[in-house]
Design a protein around this nucleic acid. Structure first.
Lengths: 201, 201
DNA sequence: GCGGCGATGTCAGCGGTGCTCACATCGCCG
DNA sequence: CGGCGATGTGAGCACCGCTGACATCGCCGC
């Protein structure tokens, strides 16, 4: 018994596959991973993975779920950094863009669900939107953000940060990381949007 | 001679391949197209396409170039609609988001160049940024847009419109089109950004 | 305790893919 | 008109996603 934690027949394959696939996607992009290669790395036959994932897309979905959870936890953690709404917003923006910069392929995968509800209708998008909305209302009550339709402000700031993140992620696929100076500048720009505020007349 | 415009051996294959690939990408996504399938549709052998494109990526690059040209021409056309900078900006935003909504897979492809300069460093991004910058300076001179670092305003509006476009494109992959009402609303929001204006203190 | 049964893994294989290489064919140019 | 380069062909390689029949393992009820 070389491995104490290997259960069942050969080990807990499902878990092994997901974590290996996540690393592979992160390093080489989503369409560079192959079932057969993952099976080889896990030391099982090429057909074994299909006992756990009916097809490749389902594996990628599982990877996307895990990546989304990672991102979400980073956002949550970032939101605890500041006390007022504005700095929390800024921290979330930085974290979001930073994730896109450091894990462009995973960031892609999260928003690339081909089936039904994707990126902004999926879990991450919803939670993020809720949090942003709450922050904006809080900021308005504190007088930090001008009065205006909160829905519209939320939509706009969401679009702005997502656009920044995508621009960074699309820059050089998995080459250049965002300098912390650049990140600060971008976050500043985004925050300015809220400070100035705007809305339908 | 059934075909008068077929030159050379079998016809002008290169052109045929690019247009067929463009339609295929638009309808079914980039990784749903295959060299062999395209060859079949063109009535040539599976190896023929490789006389014109050393590998699949180069074909997709050509398709992306063509799509980018399409998009660019729509943006140019949209920019002639209005007289003042603000309405021109709004028209460009609508056109940009509309293209992303109607051709999500092509919009993806344009920004997905894996090699060197991609989306925002490529031709479309540059021309768009230049045009936006010009519009903003023009708007500032006309007093329509508050004085502030034009570079920063350009970056922000670029990110905002790109973010909106991606959110729409990611919504339901190639299912739902953007209602003209929604488009108007989004453009309004983006324009508000400029009207209010903002910049580094 | 043990026998059966479901979950898990194996093997061989199907049709598809990107891509290559030796060869055939065509048009143009000297 | 003859040769040559551009273009298309056919066979084939290695890989892929995925399938079905079969083997093996652990657990659960008898």
């Amino acid at each position: 018994m070389p491995e104490p934690d290997t259960r069942y027949h050969h080990g807990n394959l499902r878990e092994t596959l997901v974590t290996a696939a996540l690393r592979a996607v992160d390093r080489e992009g989503a369409d560079a991973v192959s079932m057969r290669q993952l099976a080889r790395e896990a030391g099982v036959s090429s057909a074994a993975p299909f006992r756990h994932f009916a097809d490749k897309q389902l594996l990628l979905d599982a990877v996307a779920d895990r990546a989304a959870a990672q991102l979400q936890s980073m956002l949550d953690r970032a939101a605890t950094d500041g006390t007022d709404a504005l700095t929390q917003f800024r921290a979330m923006t930085v974290a979001y863009v930073r994730y896109a910069s450091e894990h462009p392929a995973l960031f892609d995968l999260i928003h690339a669900r081909p089936g039904a509800l994707s990126g902004f209708l999926g879990a991450v998008g919803d939670e993020r939107r809720l949090k942003l909305n709450a922050l904006i209302c809080e900021g308005q009550n504190a007088g930090l953000i001008p009065e205006a339709d909160p829905e519209l402000i939320t939509l706009t700031s969401e679009a702005l940060t997502h656009g920044l993140a995508r621009m960074v992620a699309e820059g050089h696929p998995r080459v250049r990381a965002l300098s912390s100076e650049d990140a600060r500048k971008l976050a500043l720009a985004a925050t300015q949007l809220l400070q100035r505020g705007f809305g339908l007349s």
